[in-house]
Every structure is written in C-alpha cells, then in structure tokens.
C-alpha cells in the first residue's frame, strides 16, 4: 500500500517502457547480448572504414595465412583478409535480417491484425495460407522459389537491359538479394501474422477495448490506439528472436549456395568455403562460424531478456 502512495507522491512520470528498460537493465545476459549486437551493428554500418583491408582485394603472396597481428583471423585461399570479410559478412547478415524481418513484419502485422480484429472469411483464409506455408520445410521452399524464379527473372532483366540500356538491369547482385529477401520474407511472415492475430484476438475482448467501443470510437482508432500498442510487447520479443533466425537462415542458404553468391562475403558462404579446407586451415571455418554462433546466442539472450522485461507477469 505504501509503495503505491510513494509512487504517486513523486512526480517522475513512469511508463511501461521505462519499467521494462529498468527490468532489462538488471538482466546481465540480455545486456551482454545487446552489447554484442550493438558492436556488430557498428561494424556492419562502418565496417569499410574500420578495416585495414578491402574485403575483395586479393594478395596471392599471402594466401591461407594463420591468424596474426596484421591479420587477426588470417587470410583465405586468395589472400583476402578474413577479418575484413567477416565484418563485411556482418553487413550482409544484418542487411538481409533487417530487410527480411521488416518485410515479414509489415505483411504479418497488417494481415494478422485485420484477421484477428475483424475475423470472418478473411481470417479463415489467412489461417489456411499460414498453415500451408508453415507446413512446407523452409529450406525446401526457398530452394524451390530460387530455382524456379532465378532464370525467368534473369531473362526478364536481360530484356529490360536491352530495351532501356540502363546498367542497373545488368547488376546480378540485385537478383540475388531480391530472391533471397523475397523467398525469406515469404517463409518468415506467417509466424508474425499468427502471433499478431493471436494477440489481437485476446486483446480485443479486454474491457478497455469494450470501453473504447462504448465511447463510440471507430474500429480503426481502436485497433491503432488500443489493440496494437498492447500487442507490441510480444511483437518486440518475436522480432528480436526473428532477427537472429533470419541471420541463421541467410547463412544456411548461402552455405547451400542458394543465397548470397561470391564474391559478396556472407558468413554462410565463408563457412561453406572454410569447410572444404578446414583440416589444413581451420581458421577459415572457425572465424565465420564462431561469429555466427555468438550473434545467434546474443539475439537469443536479448529475446529472453525482453520477454521477461516486457511480460513480467510471466515470471514464476
């Protein structure tokens, strides 16, 4: 009782987000995860200015060097600095993860919110679609999409180039990225849609939503100001875990050769290259794999921490 009074006596405003941040700050693991991710984001953003070597420049006199002071992660079979490539790989990984998650989130939130709030036929159809998408193995779906669309799109772009003579249509990397983003977004949005739908379904019957209806507010207003803000907690947790998953997925696809193609460095294709020579030059495998593992674990720690911070009632 006294805590309530003191809270009300002092004038410092406290919001749910502030309280969540307070709880997160006490969680060492989550803070570590956040720190690792922050460092990687800085490297991904400013990598080219931070690395002493260009990730593409080859030095055939310095091939397969073991880690040393001048090359902390050594060099690969073309004499490229592995540390620079891992850092540039972070850029690829973050770019793919953020874009894929953004696309998946936009589709998922929009469809999930409409389905959950209005229900009806749209809801049923959406649930069928998500069930179907989620029932197909993710890797298989991406391989199929890539394999079946790559050639038609390449041909189409070739035709566009011949028609417009604009060099943008000759850039093969665009196809790579578009296909990677597109196919990954296609497999990533259904879980977000289901999460948002489930959240909206549970929130829309809460008394404060009924009260908003009793006030005469429009459905749009109720959805935007009463329902979705209360679904944010669960969504943030899912996004934090989803970013990690998207990075692993990107690496997996690049590893299999359906994702980002050389010479653009991706942790996945670096692991793939390193695996072939790991008995002789283990650093080529260990460096990208270790970084990938650390980032994945960091996202999981952060996700767990966010979950505890945003849903304190869930703690036993």
């Amino acid at each position: 009782m006294s805590s309530v009074t003191t809270q009300i006596e002092d004038e410092r405003p406290s919001s749910l987000w502030r309280d969540a941040w307070k709880r997160l700050r006490r969680n060492k693991l989550a803070l570590t995860g956040l720190g690792v991710i922050a460092v990687l984001v800085i490297f991904a953003a400013f990598g080219p200015w931070l690395t002493p070597y260009d990730f593409l420049s080859q030095n055939l006199d310095a091939r397969n060097l073991a880690p040393s002071l001048s090359h902390p992660f050594g060099t690969d079979d073309l004499g490229r600095d592995v540390a620079s490539r891992v850092i540039y790989g972070a850029r690829t990984a973050f770019l793919v993860a953020v874009l894929v998650t953004a696309i998946a989130l936009a589709i998922g939130v929009l469809l999930g919110a409409i389905a959950g709030f209005y229900g009806g036929t749209f809801d049923k159809v959406l649930m069928w679609v998500t069930d179907m998408t989620m029932s197909v193995p993710q890797l298989l779906l991406v391989v199929v999409i890539n394999a079946s669309l790559k050639q038609p799109i390449t041909l189409w772009m070739e035709a566009r180039y011949l028609a417009t003579m604009n060099p943008i249509w000759r850039n093969g990397a665009i196809i790579d990225f578009a296909l990677v983003f597109g196919s990954m977004a296609i497999i990533s949005w259904p879980p977000y849609a289901r999460l948002v739908r489930a959240q909206v379904l549970s929130i829309r019957n809460r008394p404060y939503v009924t009260a908003a209806r009793a006030l005469g507010l429009t459905n749009r207003l109720i959805l935007m100001r009463y329902v979705l803000p209360n679904a944010m907690g669960a969504l943030i947790v899912a996004v934090s875990a989803g970013l990690g998953t998207a990075m692993v997925l990107e690496s997996a696809f690049s590893f299999l050769g359906v994702g980002v193609n050389p010479p653009t460095p991706s942790w996945g294709n670096m692991i793939s290259d390193g695996l072939r020579v790991w008995t002789n030059y283990p650093h080529l495998l260990v460096a990208p794999a270790a970084v990938l593992a650390v980032v994945t674990v960091a996202f999981n720690f952060l996700g767990d921490g966010l979950n505890d911070a945003l849903n304190p009632k869930g703690q036993k």
Partner: peptide
C-alpha cells in the same frame, strides 16, 4: 454512444495500460 456509457467491474483491465489517465480521458 455519448449519451449511454458504461463502467465495468474489473478496475484493473478497464483502462488501456499504454495510455496515461489524461490521454484516456481526452480521447472521448
């Protein structure tokens, strides 16, 4: 709706947790 209002049973779930009291009252 303006003329006909309602007060609910559970005071803990009747207010939007993401809105300050001022915001909640300004809305209508």
């Amino acid at each position: 709706r303006r003329d006909l209002q309602i007060v609910f049973q559970d005071p803990y779930s009747t207010l939007n947790p993401r809105m300050t009291i001022g915001e909640a009252l300004s809305e209508p």
